[in-house]
């Protein structure tokens, strides 16, 4: 069990003035079985009013329209979270579990991933969790971490063919493999100690409990991890989504820090 302080700051700089923009932000750690959120503070620049709500996956979101002309948009959230209170998340009422059993969007496999899965199939142990651990370990060794070669829209199949990618790609591939085994699996966004950016990992359902596994680091998502939200793939839980009038070229920078603090 740890107490973590987080600081997430996203800034978008535009080469030309934005006259109007619409935004939806999903970057709010929530109370779950594994974590408790002690305090959060949110700052938006330009400061505008916004609506709050929850999406269909239970992720908290804020959204609105910004009509103040601006050439920089900034979103800053800080807070304290107690993590590692449990080793899993509960299955709620199980209504959504079936949804996470089927390929969708960026986690859809193709011929290359089918072939990879067939090659692994014979050595898979019994049990969803054990299968997940095995697949995570194999993927960690068979796929290379490299920034900049994949993008937001890269699918599991494309990343796998390329052989390299970032946490988002690891997660999509692992979800695709778990789906091949008929195991419900979902994409999780969050933050972790030692990462300068947001992070992504996977949760799989085993006997009514969702376990977090991080294929990028070949480890279960323990108390170094702050969970933000989940969905079927990265597109379901984009931290920031926006459309704008004007703006020209844009440059987005995200700074994240997670540090352990005393109780």
């Amino acid at each position: 069990m740890k107490k973590l302080h987080f600081d997430y700051c996203m800034q978008i700089a535009y080469s030309e003035v934005v006259s109007v923009c619409h935004f939806t932000i999903k970057c709010f750690p929530m109370k779950t079985l594994r974590q408790e959120v002690e305090s959060t503070s949110i700052e938006l620049y330009p400061a505008v009013t916004y609506s709050t709500g929850e999406d269909s996956f239970g992720n908290r979101q804020i959204y609105g329209e910004n009509t103040i002309p601006h050439d920089t948009f900034q979103f800053h959230i800080t807070g304290d979270v107690r993590t590692g209170l449990a080793g899993w998340e509960k299955e709620d009422d199980g209504k959504m579990t079936a949804v996470f059993r089927h390929p969708h969007g960026l986690n859809v496999a193709g011929e290359a991933l089918y072939a990879y899965h067939v090659g692994l199939k014979t050595s898979l142990p019994a049990g969803n969790y054990e299968k997940g651990i095995y697949l995570m370990n194999r993927l960690y060794h068979d796929f290379a971490y490299e920034k900049g070669c994949t993008g937001m829209d890269t699918t599991a199949e494309q990343a796998w063919k390329l052989g390299r990618g970032v946490c988002q790609d690891y997660a999509h591939i692992m979800i695709a493999l778990l789906h091949r085994e008929g195991i419900p699996a979902r994409y999780v966004t969050g933050m972790m100690i030692g990462e300068g950016a947001s992070h992504a990992w996977v949760e799989l359902c085993h006997e009514g409990k969702w376990y977090g596994l991080d294929p990028t680091n070949n480890a279960p998502a323990g108390d170094d991890y702050i969970r933000i939200g989940c969905g079927r793939d990265a597109a379901d839980c984009l931290i920031n989504r926006g459309i704008m009038h004007g703006g020209g070229n844009q440059m987005q920078t995200v700074r994240v820090s997670v540090t352990e603090t005393d109780f």
């Binding site: 999406d55 269909s56 996956f57 959504m96 079936a98 059993r101 089927h102 079927r232």
Partner: peptide, 14 residues
């Protein structure tokens, strides 16, 4: 259902 293009997970719970 869940693999069909007409199903929208975004509508869950609404």
């Amino acid at each position: 259902i869940f693999a069909s293009s007409g199903y929208l997970a975004e509508c869950e719970g609404i």
